[in-house]
């Protein structure tokens, strides 16, 4: 009895819950992606495992360049697989040319797949904007600062600005005035 139960336990322990994350080549078409993923699912099914959850993230920017690629198609599987099958699928993932990178990890028992907010990752390109914004902001600040100390002499400055703005008109007027004066004299 005890031996039998022990054997049963062993057989049960051989089947574990695993997570597969696959990053596919972003240049693949949708049909090719479904075909590729179908192959892996078939492999899992053939080995006697079953996929418990699927999560397709779609195209996503990589944090760094891998194999001259800046993006990747992310797919996450949770699957119950026999331990003996791991070597096989890891090898298959490694050999496949369309797989940019892959990961197979063991999950704790009773793990429930949770979807996480990956929205913040879209913020990363903001960094460039951030610097631009910051610089523009600083520029604005400097302009404000310039106007700050000149608050006392604000009316004068505004008048000057007005004069500058209408410089052409004023020049014309002055020319006319001066011309008129010259003529009068």
């Amino acid at each position: 009895m005890t031996k039998a139960t022990a054997l049963e336990n062993k057989a049960q322990s051989n089947v574990g819950l695993y997570e597969l994350m696959i990053i596919l080549n972003p240049e693949l078409r949708e049909s090719e992606v479904t075909k590729k993923l179908g192959e892996f699912e078939e492999m899992i099914a053939k080995s006697g495992g079953k996929v418990t959850s699927k999560d397709y993230w779609g195209k996503r920017a990589l944090a760094y360049r891998i194999k001259r690629k800046d993006d990747g198609l992310y797919m996450v599987y949770n699957a119950e697989m026999p331990a003996s099958f791991l070597k096989e699928i890891k090898e298959a993932l490694r050999i496949d040319k369309e797989v940019v990178r892959s990961l197979v990890i063991r999950l704790p028992e009773g793990h429930v797949y949770t979807k996480f907010d990956l929205t913040y990752v879209k913020e990363e390109p903001r960094k460039k904007d951030f610097f631009v914004k910051k610089s523009s902001g600083s520029m604005a600040n400097t302009s404000v600062k310039h106007s700050g100390p000149s608050v006392m002499a604000k009316p004068e400055k505004s008048e000057d600005k007005g004069k500058e703005a209408n410089a052409v008109d004023l020049d014309k007027k002055l020319d006319a005035m001066l011309g008129g004066n010259d003529l009068k004299l």
Partner: peptide, 17 residues
Amino acid sequence: KLSREMALVPFVTMYRK
């Protein structure tokens, strides 16, 4: 370290293309 491996998080701040 896992998320770094899967390019979800960078290893370093800057990388040159």
